[in-house]
């Protein structure tokens, strides 16, 4: 199925997927559909580009690729690509399914009517491909590959766009506003490490390194980002109480491990406790400014890094 589509002929497996996708209803030929699958497979299995694709397996078997294709959201993929190709019926379907949802999403993300309308309109323009580059209409829907739901993808794209804008706005904030916000002369930021005990840092790093990435993600989401248990649970597909128990376990475990590591380095129990509880709020303030001015990232198209939002900002409690 992953072979380049021959005119008038696609492999049986692809033909079955084509039928499943309902792409014919949007006037998409089996060959075109096969080419799209080919492109998706290429992206996730073969792409040598810098694209994040953890599953890059140049030697994946044909069966693996076929299985991968069968697991895609084929119907939504067909819809998205038919829209990108300008099929009218596809657009009608798309609008009827997602238009209102998109506005709801925008309102949810921006929490402001005017900004929401702006964000939704801008996304629609991108989806239509109205921001023509090089005189060619290029719909953002072309980048949808059907790994997740189309609706979820739309929400994610919108969130990325929102963050990009937020970041741009942040960068253009005047010096006075920065001062009002408590972000003072970021350029003068010292290295954060200089004020904390290197032994403590090493002990903490070690303790964190022993954790799984999921645990570190949970810690960062809760303690750094101020996310609610419900939000973390939703992102991990867990129950809130599981997240709560995990956080308790992690916090207790970290404390123990750090203390143990410090004592290994010759500190008394009292010294170790004192070192661990040393207040690093000043450091954090500096870090915040450092993150604010760090703008070299290429996160999402046309964007760079933003500071973490204030704790609780993203929560809905």
């Amino acid at each position: 199925m992953t072979k380049p589509a021959q005119p008038g002929h696609v492999p049986d497996a692809t033909a079955a997927l084509y039928e499943r996708s309902g792409a014919a209803a949007y006037g998409m030929s089996a060959e075109r559909f096969a080419a799209i699958l080919d492109e998706v497979v290429h992206k996730y299995f073969l792409s040598g580009s810098a694209q994040y694709s953890a599953q890059r397996l140049p030697h994946a078997s044909a069966q693996q690729k076929a299985d991968f294709c069968a697991g895609l959201r084929l119907e939504e993929l067909a819809l998205a690509r038919a829209c990108a190709a300008g099929n009218e019926r596809a657009w009608q379907d798309f609008i009827s399914r997602y238009r209102q949802k998109l506005h709801g999403m925008a309102l949810h993300i921006t929490r402001d009517g005017a900004h929401a309308a702006d964000l939704a309109d801008s996304l629609f323009a991108d989806l239509y491909g109205m921001n023509a580059r090089e005189q060619v209409r290029k719909s953002k829907l072309l980048s949808y590959t059907g790994r997740g739901s189309l609706e979820g993808w739309l929400r994610t794209v919108m969130a990325q766009e929102f963050i990009n804008r937020y970041r741009k706005q942040k960068r253009t904030v005047s010096l006075e506003e920065q001062t009002e916000e408590g972000i003072q002369f970021a350029a003068a930021t010292p290295e954060p490490a200089c004020t904390s005990d290197p032994r403590l840092e090493a002990a903490t790093d070690e303790a964190l390194a022993e954790l799984s990435s999921e645990d570190r993600f949970t810690l960062a989401s809760y303690y750094l980002d101020g996310r609610t248990l419900a939000e973390i649970a939703a992102t991990l597909g867990l129950h809130e109480s599981s997240v709560s128990r995990r956080l308790d376990r992690l916090a207790t475990g970290l404390r123990k491990r750090i203390l143990a590591a410090l004592r290994m380095q010759g500190m008394s129990h009292a010294q170790a406790v004192e070192a661990m509880e040393a207040d690093v709020r000043d450091i954090r303030l500096n870090l915040r400014s450092r993150l604010t001015q760090d703008s070299a990232a290429t996160t999402f198209p046309g964007s760079s890094k933003i500071p973490a939002r204030d704790a609780g900002d993203g929560s809905t409690d």
């Binding site: 994040y52 953890a54 709801g104 999403m105 949810h108 993300i109 979820g152 929400r155 994610t156 919108m158 969130a159 990325q160 929102f162 963050i163 799984s212 990435s213 999921e214 570190r216 993600f217 960062a220 989401s221 750094l224 980002d225 996310r227 609610t228 248990l229 419900a230 939000e231 649970a233 939703a234 992102t235 129950h239 809130e240 993150l291 990232a297 996160t299 999402f300 890094k305 933003i306 973490a308 939002r309 993203g314 929560s315 809905t316």
Partner: peptide, 28 residues
């Protein structure tokens, strides 16, 4: 992905912003 998310506040923010409204408005 988790390895990346553990380090990347931007992507963490994106996935939470992109959560369906019902998921963040109420607990399961």
């Amino acid at each position: 992905m988790l390895e990346h998310l553990a380090l990347c506040g931007d992507c963490r923010e994106v996935i939470v912003l992109a959560l369906p409204i019902a998921d963040v408005a109420a607990a399961p």
